[in-house]
Design a protein around this nucleic acid. Structure first.
Length: 275
DNA sequence: CGATTCCCCTGATAGC
DNA sequence: TGCTATCAGGGGAATC
């Protein structure tokens, strides 16, 4: 499932590959619902336009167009893929949208479960409003341990739900939340406001560590994540608990447990991670 | 405000 | 073999 490190990997590669290219045509096949507000608006907004730059906010990939203000937002949700292809390549089984570029390259949006979407943001004002709903970006200087502490101190929700709440912190999903909590030795159901000073600092450090390592590894390929070259990310080998229930904890050898927290499958070590 | 549930989807897996 | 039930999950909406 594409989270901050996966979307960031895609953003960097697309900037390298497609910046400055002109979009010729958008083709869609079997799933008009993924084009918002509707397919005609998306076609009209992007056909004939130049790609200015790819940006990222939380798990959103933003494609700024060179026409003073239009931005196309991509959300990959659970199983979305953005793949770079040639116009001679066949489309994949779960392909729904193809964006054709002026050099024969194509950007294919595939999505097995059809939760992902492509959305037109018509101007800077609308973009600003959309982005204002998100909490701080964890890998920027605005995200300090003091900022993190303030977020945690005013909620009685469990810590895992809080760090996955996009309105509180941007970009952390199920994989990196479980991994950061394991690294910081904090139980996922611990009440956020009850974290000690040390736990706050440890979790802050752990979040930055796992997100940075995730980017260095070009993402985690569980489920169907692939980068734009259709290659798997290498972070799976660095996972300590995620989807490793019934395996021994890499730190203490206790068997990893799986529970549900906030409706999400949650993996943790019952010995290392205490409430 | 928070907690819970439903919904959107479909491949994989388990049980019969 | 093939059917059916269950599960996975980001995030938005509805309800209490």
């Amino acid at each position: 499932m594409p989270e901050l490190p996966e979307v960031e990997t895609i953003r960097r590669d697309l900037n390298k590959e497609l910046k400055g290219r002109k979009i010729l045509k958008l083709k869609f096949y079997d799933w008009a619902k993924m084009l918002k507000p509707d397919p005609e608006t998306v076609k009209k907004a992007i056909e004939g336009k130049k790609i200015k730059e790819f940006d990222r906010r939380a798990k959103l990939l933003l494609m700024h167009l060179g026409d003073h203000g239009t931005t196309i937002v991509f959300h990959l949700k659970l199983t979305g893929q953005l793949l770079l292809k040639k116009n001679t390549d066949p489309k994949d089984r779960f392909n729904h949208v193809i964006i054709q570029l002026d050099n024969g390259d194509e950007l294919h949006f595939n999505d097995l479960r059809k939760f992902g979407y492509i959305k037109v943001i018509k101007d800077k004002e609308e973009l600003k409003k959309l982005l204002s709903d998100f909490g701080p970006e964890p890998l920027t200087k605005e995200f300090t341990v003091e900022v993190f502490k303030k977020i945690l101190k005013k909620t009685s929700r469990n810590i895992k739900t809080v760090i996955m709440d996009q309105a509180k912190i941007s970009g952390v999903g199920n994989i990196y939340a479980d991994e950061a909590l394991w690294r910081a030795k904090i139980h996922p159901e611990k009440t956020a406001e009850k974290l000690t000073e040390k736990e706050i600092q440890d979790l802050f450090d752990a979040l930055l560590f796992v997100l940075k390592q995730g980017i260095e590894d070009r993402g985690t390929s569980v489920d169907s994540y692939l980068d734009v070259y259709a290659d798997e990310g290498k972070h799976k080998k660095n996972l300590k608990v995620f989807r490793l229930d019934k395996e021994p904890c890499p730190r203490c050898k206790t068997i990893i447990k799986k529970i549900r927290v906030g409706g999400r499958g949650t993996h943790y070590c019952p010995a290392c991670q205490v409430k």
